[in-house]
Amino acid sequence: MRLPFETPVTIELLLASPQHRYEGRPSDGPVDATARELHDSIQVRAGLGVVGDRHFGQRAHVTASVTVMAAESVEYVARTLGTGPLLAADTRRNIIVRGLDIDAMRGETFSIDSGHGAVTLLAHRPANPCGWMDVVLAPGAHRALRQRGGMRCEPLTSGTLLLGPAIVRRAVASTAPVPLF
């Protein structure tokens, strides 16, 4: 499949966590990390997900094994709630990119290429925020992230993604700049 329309982006965060850290009640707080979660690069495998991530190879997560979110969404929450900077890693999304309105791409096939070959993804459905966002980001973050939580994607091809500049290719042209919300 040829994806002719290109958008330069920056991959700001790559997360692969072997454990679910937001278990139980949000009021109890997250489970402590037992392994490194943030990486300079990640391996994505077609039909399986991010190597080393808790959803890798899980049948229930085949079409939702990779989550992609816009950095601008986290910044919107900080501005709206007046909190100062928030940690995008607390959203638990696998890939945080700057310069892409991923929330508008439901149903689209797109690729991300950070210099080691393109990884093609299909954006199936929104990665809706949960009540944990009010605990780990700030009170009110759950509501502020509605329709800004990113997309749950199915990896169609395998490859490596690295932090830094990248190119997103889509079958349709982006008609507007990334909203600052």
Rank of each mutant, 00 (worst) to 15 (best):
M1L: 12
L3S: 02
F5W: 14
F5V: 12
F5A: 11
P8V: 08
I11H: 02
E12Q: 10
L15C: 12
A16Q: 09
S17D: 15
P18N: 05
Q19G: 07
Y22M: 13
E23M: 13
S27F: 06
S27G: 10
P30T: 00
D32M: 11
D32C: 05
R36N: 06
S41F: 12
S41I: 00
V44Q: 09
L48I: 00
H55C: 04
Q58Y: 04
Q58G: 08
R59L: 12
A60Q: 13
S65M: 08
S65L: 09
V66L: 00
E75I: 01
V77K: 01
T80D: 13
G82C: 08
T83M: 03
D90C: 09
R93S: 09
I95T: 03
I96G: 02
G99S: 08
I102E: 01
I102D: 02
D103I: 01
M105G: 03
G107W: 08
T109I: 15
T109V: 15
T109W: 02
I112C: 04
H116D: 14
A123D: 09
A123R: 07
R125Q: 13
R125G: 05
N128E: 13
C130D: 01
L137H: 07
G149A: 10
T157N: 09
S158W: 02
G164R: 10
P165H: 12
I167M: 13
I167L: 14
R170K: 10
V172G: 03
A173C: 02
T175N: 11
V178M: 14
